[in-house]
């Protein structure tokens, strides 16, 4: 770095600080708007039932070692036998659920609302930043970077002689977009933090096939090695109590 750029303090007062504040405020606004638009849909009882069955099977798998092996076998048969076990899905019904999911307009509507509430503010903010703040050297990162980062950090200013650690206003917007996630999870609670992942799950849930997860749970239940943990506990209790008494 041969010579430092001298940046006008007006850039700080009228570009850097307003941009950051606006990003925070828009994040908060987006959170409340998406909270308002979230429709509380009544879930399909069949899907809820299947989900509960999966949770029960998972609990059985987790706590398998705390019940005698006879009881475990009885429960396993209850879940996974081939005739009327809860986890067993007849072959014909597999496609049915997916078609049902597609025919449900509420679902698609809800997803669209969520996506829109993400995309619209982002596009608007980006357009706003482009319109007002294009071409400013707004900030400087306090650590050196290689030339490869130039396109990332100096988006919008075409000067190849400026040191890479100087950040253009448009790239400052992107930095804010990614870096403020932690701040939002602090000030808005965890809901906001999980919002993205939930959206992803909904995306995946579109082609989601309940019979598949039932089958997977059945398989993993089938291969559980049962070993009753409690017989050793009597000896352990004996030693503990002896220690207490003596």
């Amino acid at each position: 770095m041969a010579e430092d750029l001298v940046l006008d303090t007006a850039i700080r007062d009228w570009v850097l600080i307003p941009l950051s504040v606006v990003m925070v405020l828009i994040g908060i606004l987006r959170y409340f708007v998406s909270k308002l638009m979230r429709s509380s849909q009544i879930p399909d009882p069949k899907i809820v039932k299947e989900g509960q069955v999966i949770v029960r099977a998972r609990n059985l798998r987790a706590g398998a070692n705390f019940i005698p092996s006879k009881s475990f076998r009885a429960r396993r048969v209850y879940f996974s036998n081939e005739e009327n076990g809860l986890l067993h899905v007849p072959k014909g019904q597999a496609q049915n659920a997916q078609a049902q999911m597609f025919s449900d307009p509420n679902m698609a509507m809800d997803m669209m609302k969520k996506n829109l509430s993400m995309i619209i503010p982002q596009t608007l903010t980006f357009a706003w930043v482009n319109f007002f703040f294009s071409g400013f050297v707004a900030a400087k990162i306090p650590f050196p970077l290689t030339q490869r980062f130039r396109s990332m950090l100096q988006n919008g200013i075409d000067l190849s002689t400026v040191d890479v650690s100087y950040v253009s206003s448009r790239s400052w917007y992107f930095l804010n977009l990614f870096g403020l996630r932690g701040l939002f999870s602090l000030i808005l609670g965890e809901e906001n933090a999980t919002d993205d992942t939930q959206r992803m799950m909904q995306m995946g849930g579109f082609g989601f096939d309940p019979s598949k997860s039932l089958g997977a749970e059945k398989d993993s239940l089938d291969i559980v090695q049962h070993e009753w943990a409690l017989p050793k506990f009597e000896q352990r209790a004996e030693t503990v109590l002896k220690n207490l008494v003596s």
């Binding site: 900030a139 930095l175 870096g179």
Partner: peptide, 16 residues
């Protein structure tokens, strides 16, 4: 988050 706020505070205090 650290890098973002580091940059922000550093710029406000030291660069301008």
């Amino acid at each position: 988050s650290f890098v973002l706020f580091w940059t922000f505070a550093y710029d406000i205090v030291h660069i301008f």
